[in-house]
Design a protein around this nucleic acid. Structure first.
Lengths: 336, 336
DNA sequence: TTGAAAGCGTTACCAG
DNA sequence: CTGGTAACGCTTTCAA
């Protein structure tokens, strides 16, 4: 079902039909009614491939790469992006890149070949060949999540080093000295790595130490937090406080501690990261750090849309975070 | 950067270059090396728009509509779909359709205009104009989640009526009679509605009754479960057991009960639906129903790929569910 | 093994 | 207000 067929049915040229369909004027009422009647009758749907292909027109695709959706945080970011993008007539082409630059690079190559209007990528670490392709693409690129102060093009997110640092300073400030970290391991550096670096710096600068770093070969989810804590405490029973890669792991750890008769925060301190929605209904507030995930996604989509519309855009936007003191850690001052 | 430019640089015709790039044979070693050298040099990326457009070739896009990602269940389904699709060289074009047929229909129209290879839609209730478009599209369509025994084309999911029925029968079998439901409201019927219908039928058939149905104008998440329970118990204090739309709401409800000094399951029974991953670390097993969400998504993607490859496909696939007895309900037999 | 020409569905541009 | 023609980047088909 093509435009020519509609045009033929209506007894006009395809140019006239094209003009009617785009509503750009230059035809009579009568002609329009005639054409639209045939469009409805034949159930004609324009072929956007041809449209983009023909004109200088830009496609309405935006490629969005996300590490994984098992992590609620990224689901929220994606939700923010797609809702906002959709509201402006754009479509998300999704890529779940598993935190690996290799997968990301492959996905970038494929998506670029579809002539997207722009790309939104999670993280700031890309394979060299990906970087080359991105530079040559000549389309807006936004790096989200891990704020990149000298981005390929644009960036929205937070400074994970600072976020880790603030949490470290907070815990040391409460009097914790012998602190552990539980997270997952990745082949490549990512935001969690950066957070840990900031965290370690603050702890060591405050005369504490990150005694043990346990990096599991698993997903950063509830159950790994549970058994990771078990592993950690089996080998290092004198830990005073544990900082987790995210809230899901921290919650798993919290449950492990409770299940094994520990009193949190009296026997051990627990701190997470990300502030999951489930926190709203829990009796004990998890010490964590709030990041406006949905807003982050929306901000990225807005930046993309602004850039595509030729509006002036600030290239780097820090979306901010907020420490949540919670009640899973306590002030040790005067107790030593 | 087009194929002709590469061809010109290599001193061959674009047909030769095209053949080399597709690796379909019909050229000499020397020619291939020459062309590939220029491809690398110029950083040429094929324009897939043109490829699909030119040949009878099918695009590698698959449109996937999902109600929302705030619900962990759908994140998992999407993860299953995209991973499997990606492994076979297809790309997900996402649509968050908010549970409304209107939004879905708009999205379908847009996505179809991009000539997707197929469509995966959540739910079985579509706007009439959507159904028309889908029928005319002539591409594989899979309706997931809510199993459709006479689908538009194909369907994978579970029978939500049966799932609700089984839970109802289970609770009535334990001796519960005065049961309430807490969920969210939607303009249109969806799987939750169907579950509730099956649930009600089983309860009433077992001489119990669904005394109160509380449908909140909110998302089916933790906190609505919490305050929904508060509202419910304020108006109907004699409820023996509450069935929730999903586990997130049930967990919120459970927390409300505990926070208010109730003993679950002694004072009140709690049952959820969907079996969230967080259950793995909780001390008390939530009575729920397990659905293999990730597998469901993978199965849908596999069906799509099989159909696109021309392999024979079973059109309707029931992915099954499993009741999880849990410990948030109890057997009332002999206690009356 | 290679190349020239036609065409995919649409829009830009220019004539009428 | 309307229509013809060329062009977008690629593949198909046919000829050399």
């Amino acid at each position: 079902m093509s435009l020519s067929q509609v045009a033929k049915a209506a007894g006009v040229s395809k140019m006239t039909a094209s003009r009617v369909l785009r509503g750009e004027g230059g035809y009579s009422e009568k002609t329009r009614d005639l054409v639209m009647e045939k469009v409805d009758l034949l159930g004609y749907l324009p072929n956007r491939l041809a449209t983009v292909f023909a004109g200088d027109q830009i496609s309405t695709f935006v490629g969005v790469s996300i590490p994984d959706l098992g992590n609620e945080v990224f689901s929220q970011v994606l939700e923010g992006i797609d809702r906002k993008l959709g509201a402006f007539g754009h479509q998300t082409v999704l890529g779940l890149t598993q935190h690996t630059p290799e997968e990301e690079a492959n996905w970038i190559r494929t998506v670029l070949s579809w002539q997207p209007a722009g790309l939104i990528l999670t993280g700031r670490f890309h394979a060299p060949r990906a970087t080359d392709m991105l530079r040559n693409a000549g389309i807006p690129i936004i790096e989200i999540w891990d704020l990149n102060s000298s981005p390929l093009d644009m960036s929205v997110g937070i400074n994970h080093f600072d976020a880790g640092f603030d949490m470290g300073r907070y815990l040391v400030g409460l009097g914790y000295r012998n602190i552990a970290y539980v997270g997952t391991s990745h082949d490549t550096a990512n935001a969690a790595t950066t957070r840990l670096a900031g965290f370690t710096k603050a702890v060591e600068g405050g005369s504490g130490q990150v005694t043990k770093q346990l990096c599991l070969h698993d997903t950063a989810a509830y159950y790994p937090g549970y058994y990771g804590t078990e592993q950690l405490l089996a080998s290092s029973p004198y830990i005073e406080c544990i900082f987790y890669q995210n809230d899901a792991m921290a919650f798993g750890g919290l449950q492990y501690c409770k299940a094994n008769g520990m009193d949190v925060p009296v026997d051990i301190g627990i701190a997470g990261w990300g502030d999951l929605p489930v926190a709203a209904v829990l009796p004990q507030r998890l010490t964590s750090m709030h990041v406006p995930h949905l807003k982050l996604g929306q901000a990225a989509a807005e930046m993309m849309i602004a850039r595509l519309s030729g509006e002036p855009v600030t290239d780097v936007r820090d979306i901010g975070f907020k420490l949540i003191p919670g009640s899973t850690v306590r002030n040790l001052a005067g107790l030593a």
